[in-house]
Design a protein around this nucleic acid. Structure first.
Lengths: 209, 209
DNA sequence: GTATCCCCGTACGACGGCGTACGGACATGC
DNA sequence: GCATGTCCGTACGCCGTCGTACGGGGATAC
């Protein structure tokens, strides 16, 4: 039984509901088949466990971003891929939403700030790669990230109100189109084989005579 | 001392941090200068108080939407006004964010679902008034609402990462432009003196002859 | 004056969570 | 055999909160 085991168990407890309050020593000890005696050998107090769990979460999220944003060369496809991927994961892991709700906690606030800054930087860079100006790229990055957070919330708390299946795919395309301009009908990036038309109705029908 | 007083105090407690857990009988009693004796005369148990607070919150939010969406005739300006107004309030009242984090609570889930449905309907109607198709209007409504939720979170947990003052006004204009098409450069709403160009590069230049 | 009822304060028990004290099992070194 | 150090279980005190029991003030009716 190591400190890492406790940290992972704390994260698991958060994942399964209750937010930060789910990090309670005795319930987690029971879940691990251990007792408080073990815990207080590895940690000074509950706050230390919270901190360890937060550090672990931050590391996982950072690696996740790096993995998600890495391979794809085309910036347009990168944004698309990132949005799909990240929005799918967040729906079934309420940990991030729980942390957002505890932003008044100083440790949590610090973690959120670092993770958010990192993500926004990555997003802004993606938009810069699309040719947008510095401030415009930052605006788009903020807008994209706000949309991501909101979508994660909706997916978790009122999934019925979000489109499903194919409809959701079209919706996401519509959102992404409004973020990255619109995808040029001439230089369409292959991934979506067919219904690019559905999103083609986006905000910018004009543009090419 | 009425039941309403307790419900309002419960809401106030939530406003000031701690989310649903902030609705604790004894602290609220102290804050009201009363005791549990009074509470258990008006309510059966804590759950009843939570329910009363939720009902009160739902009523307030519903009236708020009605007031915010009512007067303005031009749909474009309505969206603008709504976005500005709602985004400003949400930043300094974490109650909604706290409720989102407790979406696993059945009562909370029901309230969130009703309020969200209502808001999305209003938003979709606004976009329909702009001439969008049914599904397109619903997509835009969802996108706008997701953006609102995300922005509220960012404003509360990492306000430093959001633009401030004039910059934020430009950012919001950029977001709204990408949602409602673009604001017509001929009918520019005066406030922004100069750099309206920054958002003018939005997704849809065409549309109006 | 007193009976009644509404409203509330006080005192109590129970529970769950934190943190501490202490002892004990077990391996290791010598 | 014995000492030492690591790791953990047990038992305890403490606190905050929920819910209940009970008593009492005070207004009103008559």
């Amino acid at each position: 039984m190591t400190a890492s085991d406790w940290a992972e168990a704390a994260l698991a407890a958060m994942r399964e509901g209750g937010g930060l309050n789910a990090i309670a020593i005795e319930p987690i000890a029971t879940r691990l088949g251990a007792t408080k005696g073990s815990f207080y050998w590895h940690f000074a107090n509950r706050e230390a466990l919270v901190e360890a769990a937060l550090a672990r979460w931050e590391r996982l999220r950072t690696e996740e971003v790096a993995a998600a944003v890495g391979p794809e060369p085309d910036p347009r496809a990168r944004i698309r891929e990132l949005y799909h991927r990240v929005t799918r994961d967040a729906a079934r892991d309420p940990t991030e939403l729980a942390l957002l709700a505890h932003a008044d906690h100083p440790r949590v606030a610090a973690v959120i700030k670092r993770v958010t800054t990192h993500r926004l930087d990555c997003l802004s860079r993606l938009f810069r790669d699309l040719g947008l100006s510095e401030t415009e790229a930052r605006y788009r990055g903020l807008q994209a990230y706000s949309g991501y957070l909101g979508r994660a919330h909706l997916a978790h708390s009122v999934p019925d109100l979000l489109p499903h299946g194919e409809d959701d795919r079209r919706y996401l395309d519509s959102v992404i189109d409004s973020l990255i301009g619109t995808h040029r009908p001439d230089a369409d990036s292959g991934a979506g084989t067919d219904t690019g038309a559905g999103s083609g109705k986006g905000p910018a029908p004009g543009r090419d005579p």
